[in-house]
Simulated assay, not measured.
Amino acid sequence: MPIFATGAAPTRSELIDHLVRTRIAGDVATPRENNLSHYRKLANGDRHYWLGLELGDRWADEQDVLAVMAERCGVVDDPDFRTGQDTIDPELTVGALDRAAAELRKAAEGGQRVLFATGHPGALLDMHGALASALHSAGCDIVRVPLGTYADDGVIVQFGGVAAYERGASLWHTHSPKPMREVLDGLVRTEQPLPDLVVADHGWAGCAAQRGIPAVGFADCNDPALFLGEAEDTLSVAVPLDDHVVDPRFYEPMTAYLLEAAGLSGFNGDVTA
C-alpha cells in the first residue's frame, strides 16, 4: 500500500485514490447500522452526540439528519438501506479539505491566534501537529493551554501545540466538549485572548463553534453533529473522513495536500519556540 514521501503533496486525483485505498474515504469501516444508530440518538436529543453544539429540536427527525449526511458526507441516501457497508464520498472529503485550506491560509495571512485540539490522539495527533507547526512558522500564534486545565477527571495536555485529553498517564479518545470548554474558560480567567480559529474534531470543535469561534472540524460518518453545525453555519468547515484508520501515517498525504492547498508547504518549525 503506497505512501507518498513525507512532505510530498499528492495531486487531487492521487489523493482521492489514496483516501479510497486506505479507507479514509470510500467504503469505510463504520457500518450502516452504527451510523443510523448515532443519527437516531442525536435526533432523540442525546447530547453525547451533539458534540458541544446546541441543536435544540431542529434535528428531531432522523431522516433530516440522514439527508444532511448524504449531502455533506456521502453516506447512502436511501432511508431503507439499514444494514451493510456505508460510504464517505472522497470528492466531498477533498472539497472540504480545500475549504479548510482557505481557513488556514486566512489565518496565516492575518497572523491569527489558532488553537489545535484532537479527541483522536491515536490517529490525528500528527496531522494537527504538522498544521500547527506550519502556521506557527508562517507567523501565527499557536494557543497554549493554561497549565492545570482539568476536565472529565483528566487533564488537558499539549504535544507540538495540539491539545489532547490525558487520564491515568494515557491519552484518551473523547467526544466530550468539556475539555474545550475548560480550555476556553481558562484563557478567559488568565486574561488571554480567545482563538481566532480552532482546528479540531469531536466535542473540541463543536464546543468552540458553539462559542462563536470559527472552527474547522474533522468528523467521521457516524458523528453527524459537526456536519449539522456546518449546515447551520455554526461550524466553518466539517471534513468527512474515517477518523481512525489502522495507521496514522495514512493521513500524511492528506496533510501534505492540505498544507500545499493552504500555501503552507514550505513552512515548518517548533511551535513551542
Rank of each mutant, 00 (worst) to 15 (best):
M1V: 14
P2C: 07
F4T: 07
T6L: 15
G7A: 15
A8R: 15
A8I: 13
P10N: 10
R12C: 11
S13K: 06
S13Y: 00
L15P: 02
L15Q: 02
H18V: 14
L19T: 13
V20Y: 00
T22M: 08
R23S: 10
G26W: 09
D27G: 07
A29Q: 03
A29S: 07
P31L: 11
R32I: 01
E33V: 08
N34S: 12
N35C: 12
S37K: 08
Y39F: 15
K41E: 15
K41M: 11
A43Y: 03
N44F: 00
G45L: 10
D46F: 05
H48M: 01
H48K: 11
H48R: 08
E54I: 05
L55N: 04
L55P: 03
L55D: 02
W59P: 01
D61C: 05
D64R: 09
A67E: 15
E71A: 13
C73K: 03
G74M: 09
G74F: 08
D78T: 04
D78L: 02
F81I: 06
T83K: 09
I88A: 12
D89P: 10
D89V: 03
P90S: 06
V94F: 04
G95P: 00
L97S: 09
A102I: 00
E103C: 15
L104C: 07
E109H: 08
G111T: 06
Q112H: 06
R113W: 03
A117F: 10
A117V: 09
A117L: 05
A123M: 02
L124I: 02
D126S: 14
M127Q: 04
A132K: 10
A134Q: 02
G139S: 03
C140K: 11
D141C: 00
I142L: 05
L147W: 05
D153K: 08
V155K: 01
V155Q: 10
V157E: 09
G161Y: 04
V162E: 06
Y165I: 02
E166G: 06
R167L: 10
R167T: 12
G168L: 10
L171I: 01
L171F: 12
H173I: 10
P177A: 06
P177L: 11
K178P: 00
P179G: 12
D185F: 01
G186D: 05
V188N: 03
V188T: 14
Q192M: 14
P193N: 14
D196G: 13
V199T: 04
G203R: 03
A208R: 02
Q210I: 00
Q210C: 02
I213D: 02
A215D: 01
F218E: 03
D220E: 07
C221S: 08
N222A: 05
D223C: 09
D223A: 08
P224W: 01
P224L: 00
L226C: 11
F227V: 04
A231M: 00
D233A: 13
T234W: 12
L235E: 01
S236G: 02
S236T: 15
V237F: 04
V237I: 13
A238Y: 11
L241P: 03
L241A: 14
D242N: 12
D242W: 04
D243T: 15
H244Q: 08
H244Y: 06
V245L: 02
V246Q: 08
V246D: 14
P248T: 05
Y251C: 05
E252M: 07
M254C: 13
T255C: 15
A256P: 15
Y257T: 14
Y257F: 15
L258K: 12
L258P: 09
E260K: 15
G263N: 13
L264M: 10
S265H: 14
N268K: 11
T272Y: 11
A273I: 04
